[in-house]
Design a protein around this nucleic acid. Structure first.
Length: 573
RNA sequence: CGGGGCGUAGCGCAGCCUGGUAGCGCGUUUGCUUGGGGUGCAAAAGGUCUCGGGUUCAACUCCCGACGCCCCGACCA
C-alpha cells in the first residue's frame, strides 16, 4: 500500500477531544475519527489493525472448537421481555419501532437470541457440547461514552456461548474459553491478567475478567503479590480484621449532635478517629428497606451487598424512607432498635464502645456495644477492599491496581435456558435444560488497549501481530529513479514473502516521514534514500531500537523476515 | 442523572473581563527554495464566532435558553 493513494491524515497536535495516550495517538495517527460522542469511524490504517485483532480472536476461537455464526444486531424486544432483561438493561438499550410499531432493540449482547436459536437447533445430547461465537457490532446507550473506543455507544465484540449437558461439562467449556483468552491476549502483545469478577446483570454464579493493566483503566482490581489472588474491586474480599473491643463498655448514652451528619463531621465533633464510628446505611433492595453497617472509615461495596441480598435492584434509600425506617433525618441512622434486616461487616463482630446514630434527629449514641445493643441479621463481607487490606486467601497485604476490562467469561448456568426452555433429550430420553456459559471480548477496546500499553513519547509501538503493517518503507527521494526502483523491488519482494508493507511515497521532507513513521509505529522501518544507497544499502530499524542497520538491498527481505520471526516468537514467549 | 469545564478557519488556540475592522500557529493551494528527524521566503484560499432569543445605535464579547463536546461519580466488552 502506498501512502500517496491512501486516506491517512496524521495530526501534529493532540486532539482536544482526547485525554488518555491511546485515544490521542489513535486520532493523531489517523486510525480513527469521531463522528459524534461514542461513535467512531475506522480509517484504513485503524481498520487494518482491527482486522488483525479480529483474526487472532477467530483463530483462537476456532482452535478452541467454537463455531462462528452471525446473529442479527436488530432484535425484537419481545425476546428481552422473556428473559426479564428488558427491565434490567432497559435504559442501556437502543430501542426503536418498526413500521408495524413492533418494539425492537439494537442488540447490546446476544444471550437471548442465541438461547432461542440453540433451543430450537439442539434436540439431543449427541449434539452437545456446542460453542458458537460471532464478531458483531453491539449497541449500548452508554451513560457516558469515554476515551474513544474504550467506552463507546457502538463497538465490536466477540461473543461466544457454550451449551452443555451438565455443570461439569460446562466447566470444561468455560476452561477452554479461559485458555483461549489467555492465548488471544498474549498474541495481541498484551499483558493481561485474569481476575475474579462480579457477574452483574448477565447473571450466573462465577466469572473472570481479563484486565489489561493500565493507569487509565476504568476498573480497580486488587492483587495479592504473595499468593496470586486477584479480583475486581467490585468483588474483592478481604480477611476481616478482628474488632478491637475494650475490656468493658459503659452503657450506651445519647449525645446531642445538632447538624453533625457525616463521619468527617463526627470525627471532628467527638475528636476521635473515623474507625470509632459505625456507619449505618439504609438501602432499598427491590423496594424493601435494609441496613448495612460498616466501620466509619470504610465504604460499602454495593455490588457485594446486592449479591448478598440476591436483589435485582439496590439503591440508597431516599430521605422519606430513611425518615420512616429510622425515625430520623439522613445522618442519624444507627443499628440500635432498627427494625429492618441489618447486615454488618465482619470487622464489626464484637465491636464495642463505638459511636452510632441514635435514630433520633440531631442525636448520636456513644458506648455502643454492637452485640449487646443491636440485633445484627448477619455478619457478611461488605466493605470496598483497598490497598493494604489482608488477602482473603493468605492474609498478606493486597495491592490496588487499575485495569482495562478486555474480556469477560461467565458461567451462566440455566438462567437463559430456563427462560427460553432450551432443552435437549438425554441418554434416557428425558428432557433437560442446557447449561450455558458466555464469553465476551471487546475487540475494538482490545485494539485501543494495545495502543495504551504499547506506545512511547513519539507514538505507537505496535506488536507485529496487530500492527497495520509489519514494515513501513520510507521512500526518501521520490525524484531519484534509483531510489524509486529499489523501493519498488523491495515492496514486491516483501509482498511476495507475505509481509505487509506500507510505502511512504509522499512528496515530503525526510523529517516529516520519520516523525510520521514513529507516530504510526509499525514494528520495522526501512529507509531507502540516495545517501544510504551510496553507502551500499537500505537502512533497517526496529521501532523499539535507536539505530538502524545498513543492509544490501538484495538481502533486505531476508533480514526483515528474520526480524519478524524474532518479534513474533518474542511476543508469544 | 448529579458536579465541573469548553464550543471562534481542517487541527490546536488567542480575542470576550472593559461591546465598535475576527486574529495567531499548524495544515491546505501556488511559486521559488530546501532535501536524512516536522526547511525558508512570498502570495492565496478558507469564518452564519454552536444554535435561538434578549439588551444595545452596535454583540464573538453582556443576559437568558437550548444543543453539542470533554472531564469527575453510578452501568459494562
Amino acid at each position: 500500500m502506498r501512502w500517496s493513494r491512501t486516506l491517512i491524515t496524521t495530526l501534529r497536535d493532540d486532539p482536544q477531544e482526547a485525554e488518555i495516550p491511546s485515544h490521542k495517538l489513535m486520532v493523531r495517527a489517523g486510525l480513527i475519527r469521531k463522528l459524534s460522542g461514542g461513535l467512531y469511524t475506522f480509517m484504513p490504517l485503524g481498520l487494518r489493525a482491527l482486522h488483525k485483532v479480529a483474526r487472532i480472536v477467530r483463530e483462537e476461537m476456532d482452535r478452541a472448537g467454537a463455531q462462528e455464526i452471525l446473529m442479527p444486531a436488530l432484535q425484537p424486544a419481545e425476546l428481552w421481555e422473556r428473559s426479564g432483561r428488558l427491565a434490567a438493561m432497559g435504559p442501556g438499550m437502543f430501542k426503536l419501532r418498526d413500521r408495524a410499531e413492533r418494539l425492537m432493540a439494537l442488540g447490546p449482547t446476544h444471550e437471548e437470541v442465541v438461547t432461542e436459536l440453540l433451543g430450537h437447533e439442539i434436540s439431543s445430547y449427541r449434539q452437545l457440547p456446542c460453542t458458537v461465537y460471532q464478531v458483531q457490532t453491539k449497541f449500548r446507550d452508554e451513560i457516558r461514552p469515554r476515551f474513544g473506543l474504550m467506552r463507546s455507544k457502538e463497538f465490536i465484540m466477540k461473543d461466544a456461548y457454550s451449551f452443555d449437558t451438565s455443570l461439569e461439562a460446562a466447566d470444561a467449556s468455560y476452561q477452554a474459553m479461559y485458555d483461549a483468552y489467555v492465548r488471544i491476549f498474549a498474541r495481541c502483545g498484551l499483558l493481561a491478567r485474569a481476575v475474579e469478577a462480579d457477574t452483574g446483570d448477565i447473571g450466573g454464579k462465577w466469572s473472570h475478567e481479563f484486565m489489561v493493566l493500565a493507569d487509565s483503566g476504568e476498573d480497580g482490581l486488587v492483587d495479592c503479590p504473595a499468593c496470586g489472588y486477584a479480583a475486581n474491586q467490585e468483588r474483592a474480599e478481604r480477611a476481616a480484621p478482628a474488632a478491637d473491643a475494650p475490656a468493658c463498655c459503659p452503657d450506651r448514652e445519647p449525645v446531642a449532635t445538632p447538624g453533625v451528619r457525616t463521619v468527617d463531621e463526627l470525627a471532628t465533633f467527638f475528636a476521635c478517629p473515623a474507625d470509632r464510628f459505625i456507619k449505618t446505611l439504609v438501602y432499598l433492595a427491590d423496594g424493601k428497606p435494609v441496613a448495612a453497617l460498616v466501620p466509619g472509615d470504610r465504604d460499602l461495596n454495593e455490588h457485594k451487598f446486592k449479591r448478598l441480598l440476591g436483589a435485582k435492584k439496590l439503591e440508597l434509600a431516599d430521605e422519606a424512607t430513611v425518615q420512616k425506617v429510622t425515625g430520623a433525618p439522613v445522618g442519624f441512622a444507627g443499628p440500635v432498635g432498627l427494625a429492618v434486616p441489618t447486615y454488618a461487616d465482619p470487622s464489626l463482630q464484637g465491636a464495642a464502645d463505638r459511636i452510632t446514630g441514635a435514630n433520633l434527629a440531631d442525636t448520636h449514641l456513644r458506648h455502643v456495644d454492637l452485640a449487646r445493643d443491636a440485633a445484627v441479621t448477619a455478619f457478611e463481607d461488605l466493605v470496598i477492599v483497598g490497598p493494604g487490606d489482608a488477602c482473603p486467601r493468605c492474609g498478606q497485604p493486597l495491592q490496588l491496581k487499575r485495569g482495562i476490562e478486555v474480556g469477560h467469561v461467565f458461567k451462566l448456568g440455566t438462567k437463559y435456558s430456563e427462560a427460553f426452555e432450551a432443552k435437549y433429550l438425554n441418554e434416557k430420553g428425558q428432557s433437560e435444560l442446557m447449561v450455558m456459559g458466555c464469553y465476551g471480548i471487546g475487540v475494538t477496546r482490545t485494539l485501543q488497549a494495545v495502543v495504551e500499553q504499547c506506545h512511547d513519547a513519539d507514538g505507537i509501538v505496535w506488536p507485529v501481530s496487530v500492527a497495520p503493517f509489519a514494515v513501513t518503507l520510507l521512500l526518501l527521494d521520490p525524484k531519484d529513479p534509483a531510489v524509486c526502483a529499489t523501493v519498488d523491488a523491495l515492496e514486491r519482494d516483501l509482498q511476495a514473502a507475505g509481509i505487509d508493507v506500507f510505502v511512504d511515497d509522499r512528496e515530503e521532507r525526510p523529517g516529516v516521514k520519520f516523525k510520521d513513521a514513529d507516530l504510526i509505529g509499525c514494528p520495522i522501518r526501512v529507509v531507502v534514500g540516495a545517501k544510504g544507497l551510496a553507502k551500499g544499502g537500505v537502512e533497517v530499524k526496529l521501532r523499539t531500537s535507536k539505530s538502524a542497520d545498513l543492509i544490501p538491498p538484495d538481502q533486505a527481505t531476508d533480514t526483515i523476515r528474520t526480524l519478524i520471526a524474532g518479534l513474533t516468537s518474542a511476543a508469544t514467549r
